[in-house]
Amino acid sequence: MTDGPSQYPPPGAPPPEDPLPNHAGYAPPGAAPAAPPAGAAGSPWATYPTAGRPGAPLPGLVLGAAHKPGAFPLRPLTLGSIYDGAFRIIRFNPKATVGAAVMVTAVAMAIPVAITAVLTFTIGLTIDASADTTVDSSVSDFLGILAAYGSLILSLLLAQIGVILVTGMIAHVTRAAAVGRRLGLREAWDATRGKRWRLIGLATVINLAFLLMTVAYIFLWAIVVILSPNPWPILAWGVITVPAFVCLCCWLWVRFYYLPVPALMLEPVGVFGAIGRGWFLTGRQFWRTFGIALLTILITQVASSMLTGPVTIIGQLSAIAWVDYAALILVLTQAIALIISNAFVAPFVAAVTSVQYVDLRMRKEALDVELMREAGIITG
């Protein structure tokens, strides 16, 4: 490996084996952190300096119109460029993207698998082939079922928290990839230091807001149903408010929910400041942002179903064949399916979202000029 910067190879090239170990702020364990680049102090977000003299172009970089030192061009991006960039980010940073998602999901789902296995081989925890719980008069059986499925729900929550942290890591991976840098798992994790609890707080605030809005809407439905003497007002209420509520959720998803994570990770803002940044960046860009986000969700859900479908079918058939171990089989296959799903869905969605964040900043704040300067494409 040369002393020059780690660049993203052209399409079709195999990924490098090891990430560049010495980024600013990402020193190996026990080593002194590298000094920030000149001009980095006071920068509005994290910087990843180029090697060599300040302002020098990356070795082998052709100064073309696209200016692509990393995973995607430093210019306003098309849909194809966004998806290509997301795939390249995952391909050339596998440990910090897929590896991180698999690790946090596997650790979380190991809990219900272990508990169910212990209960299966001690008290004989079983369920019938139709997945209805079979509870006899024994209190121990009931408590065993409660422990098994309670631990599964808890592990799903822990896996979701882990995915949130992985999303924050991928924001830094994307930021580095914009100027041709590759972050390893440790480097990406270290980059989130100081923002992890804020990230969890951000997810809590946003999800709580949507939950309260949904509860309020359901409460209004209950009032209408109780006070209406005939079904016609109820039908009219549904025809008018259901589409309106869906549209409101979509609008708030893009303006309120979609971009705060990369903003929180990469800018010196807090929870509500990140929400404000997401609101600003999606202003007058709603339909484009919504279209790409919706298409990404549809693609990942279809792909996830195709990947996890065989595992689910095998689990159900195996539960019918071995009734005595049905609970363990179903929990185990659920864990495997979730690991497979998160290995694909979480990194890709997070990468697309982070690339969209960079794209909107290039469109609105000329971030491409700053990134070109950092990559050494332009000077001054």
Rank of each mutant, 00 (worst) to 15 (best):
D132Y: 14
T122C: 10
A65I: 05
L61H: 12
W237T: 15
R193S: 15
V118S: 11
L252W: 02
G70T: 14
I314V: 15
A129F: 11
S130E: 13
A56Y: 11
L212D: 00
G270M: 00
I299L: 15
M213K: 03
V254N: 03
V135D: 02
A101Q: 07
S341A: 14
L235F: 13
E370D: 15
P268E: 05
L248A: 10
R193A: 13
Q285T: 04
V345C: 06
L143P: 11
R53D: 04
P36F: 10
F344T: 07
I320L: 07
A129W: 05
I234N: 09
F92E: 14
V349S: 08
R181S: 08
R277V: 09
A117V: 03
L157H: 10
G376P: 12
P11C: 04
L119Q: 03
N230Y: 14
V118A: 14
T379N: 14
V345E: 05
L63M: 11
P229L: 07
D128P: 02
G55R: 11
L119N: 05
R88N: 05
L281M: 10
M306Q: 10
T296A: 14
A216S: 12
M109D: 00
D368S: 15
I161V: 14
R193E: 13
P49C: 03
G278V: 04
Q285A: 12
V104P: 09
A131G: 01
A171S: 12
A32R: 15
T192V: 06
Y257V: 02
P11W: 06
G80I: 09
T353N: 13
I153H: 06
V358P: 02
L143R: 03
A101Y: 11
A350D: 06
I111S: 09
A178S: 13
G168M: 02
A350Q: 04
P36A: 02
T78D: 05
L165K: 03
Y8G: 07
R182I: 04
L152R: 11
I123L: 09
G180S: 03
I145K: 06
A188V: 03
D324G: 15
I336D: 01
A71I: 01
M103K: 13
A24G: 13
V225H: 02
D190Q: 15
T2F: 06
P268N: 05
T2C: 06
G180W: 00
L212S: 08
L58A: 13
G60M: 04
T289F: 09
E17R: 13
Y83V: 09
I297G: 05
A236E: 14
S140P: 00
I170V: 12
R363I: 06
Y257D: 05
G70F: 10
G85W: 01
I111G: 11
K68C: 09
P11F: 06
E370A: 14
M372P: 12
A66L: 14
